[in-house]
Design a protein around this nucleic acid. Structure first.
Length: 357
DNA sequence: TTCCGACAGTGGGGTCGCAAT
DNA sequence: ATTGCGACCCCACTATCGGAA
């Protein structure tokens, strides 16, 4: 099944009656396989490792037997038809030496250092900038009438690599696999500022669900932030919605975004009490984005320090994909600044069991 | 019986398009 | 012209439930 929330689905079907027909072109059985988050690399040598591209997941359907224009279509993970956004890829897919196929990969834009840049990808959809987009293809669950989903991963990838031998073109590229000591590979990936690695079992089938055969190994950053405010909870949420966090820069508290996940119900309640006890009228942040000035926010005295795990800093200087780790009562708020050279990899953390297998 | 995977529901940043102001 | 909002993309995380073990 495609993974969308019930709410989102209802919105979409109400918005466009065509969407249902479009989604039906994407067989439920070919929904993209998802990786399971893991804290430590797997043991053993029956795994291969690929770069985790920070982009949009794409599934491409090619059917050259049909002579009409729609013989190549590109779908998002949610099943939306985004063919029109990738003209260069459509052309390149038509030129492949095959009759029919489903191809699985990630659309990404690389920066100067060869690191996938998510914001650059979003900008690339502007007119005339789609040239920068590359599909990094890593799987082929269907080829020339053959269902390859039960075929071992390495055999599928060999077929895919054979189709993508032309390295001169940038529209479509084969996502190379790496072998070796997983700790060292992950360390190297993180030092290269990559988002992480995907570990895949060599002989695994293509399962269309979240599978333990595909593991997501993240390069997470973490550091402390000063809590300067919080938002109201909504829906069934208790305590508060999100924390507004910041770091000191030239003696002033600079806004660094929100963190709204990582708390359980008990922590939401107890933290809310501590925040209310520090309530104040004026914002402690030096310069707030306009949207944040308008938002309904409660300000607090900047006395609490939160440790936060996040993926990247955005160009606006706020954290992306942040989650709360814990309060740091041992840290003085005035000492909290942006850490530029923090060790990026957290391979040493204890396996939490569930994620690791 | 216990455990685990899938799902729903919170929360985040960013872009786009469109309607309201 | 500006602002607000929802629909998309990416995602992290918790709570819950039903079926597998």
């Amino acid at each position: 099944m495609l993974r969308t929330t019930g709410k989102a689905r209802a919105h979409r079907e109400a918005a466009s009656p065509l969407d249902g027909a479009v989604r039906s072109a994407l067989p439920a059985a070919l929904a993209p396989e998802l990786a399971t988050p893991a804290d430590t690399p797997p043991k053993g040598d029956d795994w291969i490792y690929e770069v985790k591209f920070d982009g949009y997941r794409v599934l491409a359907r090619v059917d050259q037997r049909a002579q009409h224009k729609a013989n190549v279509r590109i779908f998002t993970r949610g099943g939306l038809d985004w063919t029109a956004k990738f003209p260069k890829q459509v052309e390149a897919l038509r030129a492949l030496d095959l009759q029919s196929a489903w191809l699985d990969g990630e659309a990404a834009v690389l920066d100067d250092q060869g690191v996938p840049d998510f914001q650059a990808l979003q900008n690339a959809f502007d007119v005339g900038r789609a040239e920068a987009i590359t599909f990094w293809l890593f799987d082929i669950p269907w080829l020339d009438g053959m269902d390859l989903r039960k075929v071992p991963l390495e055999a599928r990838r060999a077929k895919l690599a054979a189709l993508l031998q032309d390295k001169s073109q940038t529209a479509l590229r084969f996502s190379e696999a790496f072998e070796g000591d997983p700790q060292a590979l992950l360390q190297a990936a993180c030092e290269a500022n990559l988002e992480g690695l995907i570990a895949k079992q060599r002989d695994s089938a293509y399962t269309s669900t979240r599978s333990a055969a595909w593991l997501k190994l993240r390069c997470a950053r973490r550091q402390e932030f000063v809590i300067g405010g919080y938002t109201e909870p909504s829906g069934s949420r208790v305590g508060f919605g999100a924390l507004l966090i910041g770091v000191y820069e030239d003696g002033a508290l600079r806004y660094a975004g929100r963190v709204g996940t990582g708390f359980d119900a008990r922590l939401l309640t107890s933290l809310a009490r501590e925040l209310q006890a520090r309530s104040r009228k004026a914002t402690p942040f030096a310069a707030l984005p306009a949207a944040e000035r308008r938002a309904a926010v409660h300000w607090v005295r900047p006395e609490l320090v939160a440790e936060v795990r996040f993926k990247t800093w955005t160009s606006a200087g706020v954290v992306r994909q942040a989650s709360f780790v814990g309060l740091r009562r041992d840290k003085a708020p005035e000492t909290i600044v942006r850490e530029h050279q923090s060790p990026p990899v957290e391979v040493a953390s204890a396996a939490r069991g569930r994620d690791a297998h």
